[in-house]
Amino acid sequence: MRIAYLGPVGTYGEQAARQLAQLEDLAEPILLPQIGIRAVVEALASGRTDAAVVPVENSVEGGVTACLDALWEHSDLAIARALVLPIRHALLGSGPLEGISEVLSHPQALAQCSQWLDDHLPQALQLPTSSTADAARMVAGSRFRAAIASQQAGLEHGLEELAFPINDVAGNCTRFLLLRRGERSCEGPVASLAFSLHSNQPGALLEALGCFAHRALNMSRIESRPSKREMGEYIFFVDLELPEGPGPLAEVLIELQPLCEHLAMFGAYPLTNLAVSQS
């Protein structure tokens, strides 16, 4: 089983990929690091890998827009499983904390540690990278650069742990998706879908959301993204809780279809929350 993930080695994406492979009982998976979330999804869509692991939402910074956009573009892909992974950032480097003038990391990690950086390294320049592990690789050997990354990334690149944990919110966690090609399941406690409406008219979104409400289906997440075709046109991403099985989901899709210009159902799937089990 070949699984694409946001690399290089040592990212939280790699941790999630290993955990998801274990949950799926995949023996000896081959993990293939990619540069950028879009590349992770493309590796699966093109058939170069059998699965892909992508971050879709962070508890502090919200939705990962690159993932949402990629899912919409490849609506033939299915979500097989989800994992909520606790995120514990470390400041890693090769020199003393007081000598650090540049901090490198993925933009989401920089944002998740912004208050700590303001308090402890207010003069340091913050530089974005493609991943947290890539930041760790780039600062190795430097006396004035540090990276925000996982403790595992520090071990991989021989870096000292200058501070840990440095994330502003103790309960920081990220939800990762395991994507595969093929049929989308309707069995599972959570389902994800996305839709765009025929037109931007008063009450159009309310009517669509009413399909969920009168079946007592709780939306655990709703997020909008611009369609990129014209101003004011949006795509809505929704996660639904399915406590009573797949029946209400099938009914909702039938009722929702005529209200939508496009409707993509990414599947129903199990969700494992490691952030709760480790708290």
Rank of each mutant, 00 (worst) to 15 (best):
residue 151 Q to T: 13
residue 182 G to T: 03
residue 164 F to G: 01
residue 209 L to S: 06
residue 165 P to C: 01
residue 227 S to T: 07
residue 184 R to C: 04
residue 187 E to R: 07
residue 135 A to E: 06
residue 211 C to H: 10
residue 206 L to D: 12
residue 113 C to N: 13
residue 126 Q to G: 05
residue 153 A to R: 05
residue 193 L to E: 08
residue 210 G to P: 02
residue 218 N to W: 08
residue 182 G to P: 01
residue 141 G to Q: 03
residue 183 E to T: 08
residue 206 L to M: 04
residue 143 R to N: 01
residue 216 A to C: 07
residue 131 S to Y: 12
residue 115 Q to V: 13
residue 145 R to L: 09
residue 160 E to N: 13
residue 223 E to H: 14
residue 219 M to F: 07
residue 193 L to R: 05
residue 137 R to I: 06
residue 137 R to W: 14
residue 165 P to L: 02
residue 113 C to V: 07
residue 224 S to P: 03
residue 175 R to A: 00
residue 224 S to K: 13
residue 180 R to C: 04
residue 213 A to H: 06
residue 177 L to E: 05
residue 172 N to C: 05
residue 192 S to K: 13
residue 122 P to I: 12
residue 217 L to E: 06
residue 134 D to H: 13
residue 120 H to T: 11
residue 193 L to I: 15
residue 171 G to I: 02
residue 141 G to M: 01
residue 177 L to Q: 04
residue 165 P to Q: 02
residue 150 S to R: 00
residue 143 R to K: 01
residue 122 P to W: 14
residue 221 R to H: 11
residue 184 R to A: 12
residue 173 C to Q: 04
residue 189 P to S: 11
residue 152 Q to T: 10
residue 150 S to N: 02
residue 221 R to V: 01
residue 199 S to Y: 08
residue 186 C to G: 06
residue 161 E to M: 08
residue 134 D to L: 15
residue 188 G to W: 07
residue 197 L to D: 02
residue 130 S to N: 12
residue 124 A to S: 09
residue 121 L to V: 08
